Simulated assay, not measured.
Amino acid sequence: MSVTVFLVVLFAALLHASWNAVIKTGGDRFQGMLLLTLSQGVMGLLMAVVFPWPASAAWPWLLASGVLHTAYKLFLAAAYGHGDLSRVYPIARGTAPMITALVGVFVLADEVSGVEYAGILAVGLGVVLMAQGVFANGEGRRLLPLALGSALCTAGYSLVDGVGARIAMDAASFTGWMFFLDAMFFAVAALFWRGAAVFSASGLAWRRGTLAGALSLGAYWIAVWAMTKAPIALVASLRETSVLFAMLIGVFIMRERADPGKWLAGGLILSGVLLMRL
């Protein structure tokens, strides 16, 4: 992985943590996720019109990606209803690179060195430690299966999008169509789950959702592009440094409690990032 790709993916991780913080601070997390997704869909459609049409072989991957992204957001919105940003986010994002790396060993042709896998492991251990407060502090455990479901979907779309963008031959085109399809699927799910009333939102809610959508689209556009330039498992793991950014946002901006375990976990994540750059 080049220095440029490395730094750009770190920036994407900051954007990802930021949009999660925007959604978490909103009143209705499900509606916030819906507005984020709809605004992304409009942006994605504009991208799809501007950039070249993806290769026909990429469309099954695009459809699979839209389904996985929708499921991921449904799980994540539900999990945020039961826990803090600094608890839900580490679990949801932390186990995903472990799944991605394990699957990548068997089904992908990417070459990842032993040191890089050690970095992936360090990142994973760090985020697991950061999430241990669910048990140690008696926090709501209903968030666990929801956050883990989100992690499974994250691992799934990381692999699908990495391969699909390569097949599409254009990361921007793939990303635009993926977000448009995701918006279509999520809108149907929202209508079924909450009814038409969930689409009625205040101007402030729409502005918040649009901001989160722009941050999310920028973060994932960068990630999909990076997956065409570097090993998918490595990019997916490096993106999980967003857990550290989320911890800092949670502690210093949202005033969530920070115990020594969180700071130790942050050190492990940084160590993993350094290992991946050796």
Rank of each mutant, 00 (worst) to 15 (best):
G133E: 12
A118T: 11
F180K: 06
A168P: 09
S173Y: 03
L129V: 15
V107W: 07
A118F: 06
L146H: 07
Y117P: 04
L148G: 03
G162T: 01
A118P: 02
M178P: 02
S200Q: 13
G149W: 06
A122W: 09
P145L: 07
A122I: 07
A147S: 12
G203D: 07
A96G: 10
F174K: 10
Y117E: 04
V128N: 01
M98R: 02
A109M: 05
F199P: 09
L129Q: 04
V103A: 15
G195Q: 12
G149L: 09
F106W: 14
L148Y: 05
F186I: 12
A131L: 05
R141G: 13
D170I: 01
M169W: 00
S173Q: 08
S173N: 10
A131D: 05
E116N: 09
G119I: 08
S150K: 04
T175S: 15
F179Y: 15
A183K: 12
S113R: 04
A205D: 14
Y157L: 00
R207I: 13
L191W: 15
G203T: 10
R194K: 15
D170H: 14
G140K: 11
T154F: 01
G149A: 09
V123Y: 12
T154M: 02
A155E: 00
A183Y: 12
F106H: 05
L144V: 15
A201Y: 14
G156M: 00
G164T: 08
D161G: 00
G126F: 10
M130W: 00
F186S: 11
L143H: 06
D182V: 06
G164L: 08
P97R: 08
L125E: 02
W177I: 12
Y117H: 07
F174V: 11
A168Q: 09
A168K: 07
G114R: 04
F199E: 08
S158E: 00
A109Y: 09
L204Y: 01
A151L: 06
N137K: 14
G162S: 05
M184V: 15
V105F: 15
I99W: 01
A136W: 02
M184H: 02
M178F: 08
L143W: 03
Y117F: 14
T100A: 10
V127Y: 05
V127Q: 11
L108E: 04
V163L: 03
W193L: 14
V160Y: 01
D182F: 14
L148R: 05
V105G: 06
G124L: 10
F106E: 03
F180W: 15
V123R: 01
A131Q: 04
R194H: 11
G140Y: 03
L102M: 12
L125A: 13
A118R: 04
T175Y: 07
